[in-house]
Nucleic acid binder design. Sequence first.
RNA 1: GCCGAAGUGGCGGAACUGGCAGACGCGCGCGACUCAAAAUCGCGUUCCUUCGGGAGUGUGGGUUCGACUCCCACCUUCGGCACCA
Length: 831
Amino acid sequence: MAESTGETEITAERPRVERYDPAAIESRWQACWEADELYKAVIDRSRPKFYFLTMLPYTSGNLHIGHWYAMAPSDARARFKRMQGYNVMYPIGFDAFGLPAENAAIQRNIHPKTWTYQNIENMRRQLRSMGAMWDWSREAISADPEYYRWTQWFFLKLHEHGLAYKKRSPVDWCPKCNTTLAREQVVGEDRVCERCKTPVIKKDLDQWFFRITSYADELLDFSHLDWPEPVKLLQTNWVGRSEGARVVFHTEGGDPMEIFTTRPDTLWGATFMVLAPEHPLVEKLTTPERSQAVRAYVQQTQRQTDIEREAVDREKTGVFTGGYAINPVNGERIPIWIADYVLMSYGTGAIMAVPAHDQRDFEFARKYGLEVRPVIQPEGMEPLDGGSMTEAVTEYGAMINSGPLTGTPVDQAIERTIAYLEEKGIGERAVNYRLRDWLISRQRYWGAPIPMISCPECGIVPVPEDQLPVELPEDVEWRPTGESPLKLHPTWKNTTCPRCGGPAERETDTMDTFMCSSWYHLRYLSPHYDKGPFDPEEYDYWMPVDTYTGGVEHATMHLIYTRFFHKACRDMGITKGPEPMLQLRNQGQILGPDGQRMSKSRGNVVDPDEQVKTYGADTVRAYLMFGYRWSEGGPWNPDNIHGVVRWLNRVWALVLETAGAEPGPVDEKHVRALQRKLHQTIRQATHDLDNFEFNTVVAALMELTNAMSQARAKGLAGHPAFKEAVQSLLLMMAPLTPHIAEELWSRLGKPYSIHQQPWPEFNPELAAEEEITLVVQVNGKVRDRIRVPADISEEEARARALASQAVQRHMGGAEPRKIIVVRGRLVNIVI
RNA sequence: GCCGAAGUGGCGGAACUGGCAGACGCGCGCGACUCAAAAUCGCGUUCCUUCGGGAGUGUGGGUUCGACUCCCACCUUCGGCACCA
């Protein structure tokens, strides 16, 4: 659609300018910004605050391009908010405790601390090369004693308030990492360690837990949060709330046996009971004749891994205990079985089996010849017969064979049964959660020691606050043995009891590193504060976090822990407000050029250092924003980056070559076109940066650059409108490509720094179109496009459309039945 | 099996609230500059076409004057959960 204007293009001699050389300018500006503390965030109550946070990196040693992808666009948005007048805090730090440090230490015979702090050095250098606006004065490192002193302090607080407790229970153990794991850190169908993908096994151990389940209901409340729906859903499913009733059955011997059910209405259809093999009543219930079979089955279950046991498609197995229970609603005597499809870890570890209406119970009943008794008759279905049914019937209907509730429709029956149970005192309304308490003990060295002491006289005693931190000894043998290396240290664990003064032992396990990262956003407020975990004044000004960005993979780990942590702290009077992070946005993942997840073993890792060396930080930043939908990610494509290289080169040349241009005669039409494009770009860039749509911001700025090239060719280079466009272009580039923007800004003689300038103001009048293309359709098909004034009336639009020759031809003389006019867009003629 | 996200040119991706599908860029083609090449600049680039037009946003249906966009069913890919009583 080349517009032939018939005008002669201006091809005046272009001033010669030096080439754009990112290497020459980037490190200079980085040093300059840092020396001037340009990004230092200081409390300023005259401006609205904005706490912008990206998930802190683990100290693995090398950033990969994925870190850049997560951080550079976030940085751009933080910078944008700052230009909009917010007082922005954008901190950075390191998640520095954890297993990889120990594993690396073992392989290379280097101390985990040395390895970690060397890595931090390198990562600081890499992070600085991005040119982000981090406030390094707020840097926090979770492995520093001045940090973990407060991690331990939080532990003591949780313990003091009954939210941390020690319990012996079967827990997930990774044989490769040689430590226990939280339920969240065991992943996938084959129940493997989240970190090393080794299948976990069960071990019975004394471990510390946090009572996250006390907050289950509150964790389901997202009303204060602007978080992505999928994350909220993941957390909702993870918490797994189900409503129903608890009902107390009794064994024939008189022992109470509690069950949980979501379908109390089917109580009259319970024809047997099933206990988990680990259920404490099993031994007592078992009759002497059944004892051998039961014992064999229990042993067999113990030997099984979780993978074998929890495979869904496996045929159900179980054995009869010989014992009987009494159904409290009808007094019936029903057999008690044990089976491994009932899990000790959910509900009460015991169920009533209603084979007619539950598929699992049905399969079990058919296999072992147990009675199937329907108690619900769905409408329009043949009368159910327990003997001939081929599968459980889960449809709703009217209740049958159910004593006082017979005839009740199921939608009322659940409520009425609960009322009946409560009235008779045999059960009550109850809620169950899938969520388990958070297991935080780790049998490893490189973590924050749990600040507890075990005294033979006084039991478990907390370390007094004034003795924190409990420092990690450096002279340890950190080879993993399955026991904490701290336990094997000759002297460290020996101490005196703070209560009685007698000899006592320290807890030798360390804390899950997710504990450290649950509160790092608080440590950034005042990383060197020593009167508490954070300075309350800083808290009051900065908290809560306004925008948080990171990967969706943390939905059921870090993000649920940190919410729990905040709420627990709120209840202890330490933090305020319902939530720690108000807005969350997830970036996608950058894959290797082969479309596979980047990994050293595949050899497809893209090293940001190399990219920066080849193209410069600004180009890498802009490409990461331009080449992908940020929330999606995708494979690294080494070809597409050339588009960004060319763009920055063109901007460089355009700005410098026109810098000294003198005003000359111009056509006002072209001036208007340039102004219009500029203000349309401001509108779009503002909107898109607010909405994390970085790719279209860059596209819009490229379009503006193209428009400016055309304007220049029309002789506008010396015109004030052109100067304004240059200035605004640089201002809008500043968040995305901070170095080149600053360099060109300074070469134009503008005041340092561009990053302290306000965001360009949008003027809707200048953005408005005077003339638009009116699309004319006949029966919904485009037949013509006509240029009309933007404010054209409906009648006029209709008339102009009907007058079109192309339209006439397609109407073939027919009368229009209906004409739809959409203001400023189209006319559709229906014949 | 259940829950969720995504399917648009050769490629990455645009398209506000239902109103010109393919912005911007990569790649490719042609041209200018050059002894030549690179770089740069200009033009073109969804497919088919009898040059009138026709088809087209994973597939099939529906709603509507009009559907990438809304509804129903299905297919594919990715992610989560998985005997949760």
